[in-house]
């Protein structure tokens, strides 16, 4: 039995010579080479935003307000200073990012992941600039505030989505409305494979759900109302058809997303006293002859 399989294997290797270069596995989008010179980026950002925070502090010393009022207001001041520091960091790193992007425009494609390649080095630099701000927001008491940071860094996302507990690359990712990304999930738009860096846009359409601890590979397109189950992972460039639940590695069709279908055209009401279900078809109030266009 085992020998037969080995024979098959040999045949397959000859047949699928070109498949050797097919990316049907997933590695990670963690920054590839740490360089000490990126630390130089942090110093001006921290210094400038620290000074802005201290201007606020200077106006609320006990020297000005009196000791009792000062201590009563101290918690509010600490929160306010944290806010000011975080938002100042956002503004300065955004300025820096604009400068870096003017020097070199971020683009999709395949690049060499080696020192000396412009695309790769600027990719690392962009990650490092964004990292400080996103780290601050992740240590921030308000969970939805990080969406603002993602938005300001140029990602297409709005406040109906939720990705606080997930890892997300902050460029070349498009979120629709009401997207939910689970705990520990990883949404990657870039990936280092061997010597090469691959950057491809990821699209998460309206009302999609990515389960906990799952991985979304670069180039994936999640159709409307599709679901990736927990601990699953999509393949490179995979297209998930709308309204389906996917599970496993790589993500395979499991079943239709019934809840989404129900939500689309039927509103279910229940009379609790008489235990009776009332179904109401959703109607669009436009002219009769244009209804089939919807």
């Amino acid at each position: 039995m085992i020998k037969e399989i080995k024979m098959e294997e040999n045949n397959n290797e000859e047949d699928h010579e070109e498949e050797e270069y097919l990316v049907n596995f997933i590695t990670s989008s963690a920054i590839s080479r740490i360089n000490l010179k990126f630390l130089l980026v942090y110093l001006p950002i921290i210094w400038l935003s620290g000074m802005i925070t201290l201007i606020y502090w200077w106006f609320f010393q006990p020297y000005w307000t009196g000791i009792i009022i000062f201590f009563l207001l101290l918690p509010v001041h600490i929160l306010a200073m944290l806010t000011i520091f975080t938002f100042a960091c956002v503004i300065f790193s955004k300025l820096l990012l604009i400068l870096v992007n003017l020097l070199h425009k971020p683009k999709e494609g395949i690049f060499k992941a080696e020192l000396g390649d412009n695309d790769f080095e600027f990719w690392c630099l962009r990650i490092e600039i964004k990292k400080l701000v996103l780290w601050l927001f992740n240590n921030w008491p308000l969970p939805w505030a990080d969406i603002l940071a993602f938005k300001w860094f140029g990602m297409e996302i709005d406040t109906t989505s939720h990705l606080f507990d997930a890892w997300c690359d902050a460029e070349f990712v498009k979120f629709g409305r009401g997207v939910m990304v689970g705990q520990g999930a990883v949404v990657m738009s870039s990936m280092v494979v061997g010597k090469y860096l691959i950057i491809k846009k990821v699209v998460l359409d309206n009302h999609t759900v990515v389960g906990g601890q799952s991985t979304v590979a670069p180039g994936t397109i999640l159709g409307e109302e599709s679901v990736v189950g927990a601990a699953g992972s999509t393949a490179f460039n995979q297209v998930l058809s709308p309204g389906w639940i996917y599970a496993g590695i790589p993500a395979r069709k499991l079943k239709l997303n019934e809840h989404a279908i129900k939500r689309r055209d039927i509103i279910v009401k229940k009379k609790i006293d008489e235990e009776e279900k009332i179904e109401v078809k959703k109607e669009v109030n436009i002219e009769e002859d244009k209804k089939d266009l919807v």
Partner: peptide
């Protein structure tokens, strides 16, 4: 899974961007 051939030079054109079907992946 397969041989790691991605350390060879000049693969920018060879690495395929095409989307594989679900059946093929499976």
């Amino acid at each position: 899974f397969k041989k790691n051939r991605f350390f060879e030079d000049g693969l920018e054109d060879k690495i395929q961007f095409k989307a594989e079907t679900e059946e093929r992946l499976e």
